[in-house]
Design a protein around this nucleic acid. Sequence first.
DNA 1: ATGGTAGTTCGACTA
Length: 267
Amino acid sequence: MKIATWNVNSIRARADRLEQWLLRSDVDVVAIQETKATDENFPWDLFEKNGYEVAHFGLNQWNGVAIASRVGLEDVERTFLDQPHFGKTEDAVHAEARAIAATCGGIRVWSLYVPNGRAIGDPHMPYKLKWLDVLRSNAAGWLQADPEARIVLAGDWNIAPRDEDVWDIDLFRREGYTHVTEPERAAFHAFEEAGFVDVVRPFHPGPGVYTYWDYTQLRFPKKQGMRIDFLLASPALANRVSGALIDREERKGKGASDHAPVIVELD
DNA sequence: ATGGTAGTTCGACTA
């Protein structure tokens, strides 16, 4: 069984490439981020005609997350408990479309699009950290309730946990860039302390292994990327992982997303 | 000093 995560940066702009990738990659489940779509303009047919069920959570042209599966899709959940909002509104109606879950082939799959902190000192940074902390609190609770639970937290985390996860850590420090700050890294490592495991890194250790390359300044051909997309598996699921792939081919050519798909193979 | 890219959508915002 193969499970993938992929920030597609607009599912409508990526429809043709996504369909070709589904055929080529042969994944059973894919967690998708940044659909930039509403349910009204979401390309449902693309999945159905290729044998996938799909659940989507999209409110407007921003964010948007989905899960597609050909091994079942049950108990869909949109947002996690007490998911923080940006700004003053506190009602669930105003939560951003950044988290969706479904049970696929016995695995609880979360497709997550972690908020971008934008800049050190920007109010989006404490929002990002709070969002991660509440998610971690929920996820730790799921494991406490059932230590054998098969859960995968898959998505665009907008964090580079190690210095080697960006092409030039000195540049990031000098310029005061986000994604590499200590509070962001602590928020990520808290998931590992709760028992979740990055199941891709052991198969693809760095340095120089990335999942995202900015569109500008020839970042991809210059191999200047960031590792910010992760699948964090519960212990019971991590034990079943037999391989992983970061699909750099999909970042090539005209019409590519700025993120590559990340695929995990399970026994 | 500027813009360098790509997506939403048609001005401005997001990444």
